[in-house]
Amino acid sequence: MKLIIAIIQPDKLEDVKDELYHADVNLITVSEVMGHGRQKGVTEVYRGAKEMGNLLRKIRLEIAVNEEFVESTIKAIVKGAKTGETGDGKIFILDLAECVRIRTEERGTIAIG
């Protein structure tokens, strides 16, 4: 089992969701985060005081999948989020030691689907 964490542009969320549904990945968690990589932020000015706003609003996706879904999930995220510009985001893949479905207390790969 793997946990896939992706950081994407906020206005690409709907596209990525569509692609994930097409790839039969229906279980995702989305949260709003701040971050930056190579993309430069926007300097904000408040009543004349400049503030280096180098953190930009990003969306973070977490998707737990069984091994056979890893590649198709990555492909779907790339397809939905890629524009070719800096700031498109990044995907991280972690090993998942255990997964528990709270309602039934099932564990392991059957709890993920």
Partner: peptide
């Protein structure tokens, strides 16, 4: 977490454990 979150209905949630 199960004790606090479980209702038996769909949508109760999930627990992931990573190293």
């Amino acid at each position: 977490i199960i004790r606090g979150a479980k209702t038996g209905n769909i949508g109760d949630g999930k627990i992931f454990v990573t190293t």
